[in-house]
């Protein structure tokens, strides 16, 4: 799944480690979500979107949702 996490993170000059610490996950999980290897759960997606002050749809691209 495509996400805007990397872009939003860069805008805020935030490292993966810092974001992981804020949303209660590991740096490796943030990397996996960013490269599309792992699809975040609803709770984690909400935490990430909430951290950036956006909605889940604004951070995660659901255009290929039927493939999941």
């Amino acid at each position: 799944m495509k996400t805007r996490i990397k872009e939003l993170r860069k805008k805020r000059k935030l490292s993966q480690e810092e974001l992981a610490l804020e949303v209660g996950t590991t740096r490796q999980t943030i990397t996996s979500i960013e490269v599309g290897k792992y699809t975040a759960s609803l709770v984690l997606a909400y935490k990430i979107a909430h951290y950036f002050g956006l909605t889940i749809e604004e951070v995660f691209d659901f255009s290929n949702a039927n493939e999941f």
Partner: peptide, 13 residues
């Protein structure tokens, strides 16, 4: 401590 907590409760792990 928070990193350790996150590592233990990480959904992917």
């Amino acid at each position: 401590l928070k990193v350790l907590y996150n590592k233990e409760h990480d959904e992917r792990l």
